[in-house]
């Protein structure tokens, strides 16, 4: 049983709002870089960057982080597993930058912790903020998103499926009962 909790329009709005919040929070886009966590986080990062470009007429660099170890392809941020995050495509320095880390779903927080380690290996950012489309709760680490598209309180029996039109043919967030 799948239930759509965020439709295409709502996803567009969430990204729009996150974009404005990023501008609000950072007082502009100076020194900003965006890093998306593969796979869907990258598309979301690109959409945020394209929105920033529309508004501010300036390009914000977008990089990609790869999660190499995950339990299934829907939720890499799963319980009891420490994923390894590697830098797959970041062709700009992060030192002294304000990094916006983008992922589709925030769950245990383990992926984010790994992502932050990977970033730290690259250099020393001035700050790291986290933007997620969905925060579904059940954190296992003291990690909190700065920008949240939608809070979806969920049970651990449920799965959250994020689809993006670039690869899934549609924009949606669904709750799937296992």
């Amino acid at each position: 049983m799948a239930k759509v909790v965020v439709d295409a329009m709502a996803m567009q709005r969430a990204l729009t709002r996150i974009t404005y919040e990023i501008i609000e929070h950072n007082k502009g886009i100076d020194g900003l870089v965006i890093l998306g966590i593969k796979t869907r986080g990258v598309y979301l990062a690109q959409r945020i960057a394209s929105r920033l470009k529309q508004l501010e007429n300036a390009t914000v660099p977008v990089g990609e982080l790869d999660v190499t170890q995950y339990r299934d392809d829907i939720e890499h941020d799963a319980q009891d597993v420490d994923p390894t995050v590697t830098v797959s495509k970041i062709d700009f320095p992060v030192t002294d930058k304000k990094v916006i880390l983008v992922d589709d779903v925030l769950y245990t927080g383990r992926t984010i912790r790994a992502a932050m380690s990977a970033i730290m290996d690259l250099g020393r950012p001035k700050q790291i903020n986290l933007a997620v489309l969905v925060d579904r709760g059940h954190r296992e680490l003291p990690i909190r998103a700065d920008f949240v598209g939608k809070n979806i309180p969920s049970s651990q029996q449920e799965r959250i499926k994020v689809s993006v039109s670039e690869i899934d043919g549609q924009d949606s967030v669904e709750i799937i009962e296992r």
Binding site: M9, R13, A14, T16, R17, E21
Partner: peptide, 13 residues
């Protein structure tokens, strides 16, 4: 019309 939704969502966050 979804500017009203945007408004509501902002209030939510």
């Amino acid at each position: 019309v979804d500017l009203f939704d945007e408004f509501v969502e902002i209030m939510g966050t």
